[in-house]
Amino acid sequence: MAEEISSKVPEAHPMNGGDGPNSYAKNSTHQRRVVDVAKELLNKAILEKLDIDITLLSNTFHIADLGCSVGPNTFYSVENILEAVQSKYQIQGQNSQIPEFQVFFNDHAQNDFNMLFKSLPQNRQYFAVGVPGSFHGRLFPKASIHIVHSSYAIQWLSRVPEAVVDSSSSAWNKGRIHYSNSTDEVIRAHETQYSEDMECFLHSRAQEIMYGGLMILMIPGRPDGTPHSHSQANMTLQFLGLCLMDMARKGDVSEEKVDSFNIPMYTMSPQELKTAVERNGCFSIEIMSDLPHHQLVDDTITLSQLLASHLRAGMEGIVKQQFGEEIIDELFDLYRNKCEEHASIFKSGKSCNFLVVLRRTAD
């Protein structure tokens, strides 16, 4: 029976499903570009670090993508991994030993798995399986996975820290929806939640990944030493909070609902992740590298339009749950205008996308 990591049910905030104009599938080009710029490093990691001897006892190679959402980015990532593994066998002269591949697509049960599976590539070279559940706990049997991959997912916390929505607490986050421009008490509450969640995440993966197997993570982070309030990723959520407070002042939403609304997301630094991995003790850090910056926009879309469409694809569900559907269009129109108004502030923010490759070591 799967080991229980937490007695509490993690919160679930799936991306927009379907393939409509506001869907995640149509509004995740930034994440796709991160996958593209990481491809060369990912190939190098698998060719140099993967121990293919771990496949000798099985003719099936297991890959898990955690926080897969609805595609298509998860399919690009899986294809890159599969090609790199096949190349590893061919380079070592074991072309005849290339195993069959099984891919586990994981996300919360509320994820639009129907959309995911309807859009599976027709010419795929793997067997596809859906695995519902939170990656903050166990998902797979012990020592059953060869490669775990996750891109733009582990910045989500399992839940909002309880203290930040408690009006009697010194960490009450009144008038804000995110921790980064708040008090030291609010920031510490999120740092503690992040630390606990990463402990659960790494402990669970240590149970599931075979010795010699890899975990490949692509993370939207903040550079080491950067204050939370100066993080570009955090600024996008600060602007959303300002829009909600503007609407509260106009009476369009309840200020009490804004006070009780917080987005469970934490922008980690490379050093914070390194500390968590070292504390866990079950993985070696094989690669930790900043990914090259890529152009966010092109001639067909402005920065404010891209930020608004991408944030809506990721946050519409959690906003609807708190405030109802009727405010969505107005909120994200305001958000786009806020991004235009504060474009120079956003561009001054610090950001880093980084790739981490961990290798499961023997206990």
Rank of each mutant, 00 (worst) to 15 (best):
C68V: 08
F101P: 15
Q125V: 13
Q90M: 05
A84P: 08
A128Q: 11
N80M: 13
L120M: 13
G130I: 10
Q90R: 12
P99C: 00
L120Y: 09
R138G: 06
P141E: 04
F135M: 04
Q97N: 13
H108F: 05
I63A: 04
S96P: 15
L82S: 05
H108Q: 13
Q94D: 10
I63H: 11
G137S: 12
F104I: 05
E100S: 13
N95A: 06
A109V: 07
C68Q: 00
V85Y: 01
S69F: 07
Q122D: 11
N114S: 12
F104L: 04
N73V: 06
D65Q: 04
Q122E: 14
N73G: 11
K88T: 14
I81M: 07
F61T: 01
A109C: 07
Q110A: 11
A128M: 06
L57I: 04
N73M: 10
H62W: 01
P141N: 11
E79A: 06
A84I: 03
N114L: 07
I91R: 12
S96I: 14
Q110C: 01
G137T: 12
Y89D: 01
N80P: 08
H62L: 00
N123K: 11
I98F: 00
S134L: 06
V70M: 09
V103P: 15
L82R: 12
M115S: 15
S87C: 08
S87N: 12
K118H: 15
Q90H: 06
H136G: 08
F104Y: 13
L139W: 08
M115N: 14
E100W: 00
K142R: 15
N80C: 14
H108S: 13
M115T: 14
I98N: 01
F127D: 07
F61N: 08
S119P: 05
L57H: 15
F127G: 08
G93E: 09
L57M: 14
L82A: 00
T60C: 03
A84Y: 03
I98T: 13
N106K: 02
V85F: 03
G67H: 07
F101V: 09
Q125G: 13
P132A: 04
I63R: 02
F113M: 10
S134D: 06
F117P: 05
S77R: 00
F75I: 08
S96R: 14
A128D: 13
I81D: 04
H108V: 03
N80D: 12
E79G: 06
I63F: 03
E100L: 04
N80T: 11
V78E: 03
S134V: 02
F61C: 05
G137W: 01
L139F: 08
H62P: 15
S58E: 11
L139R: 12
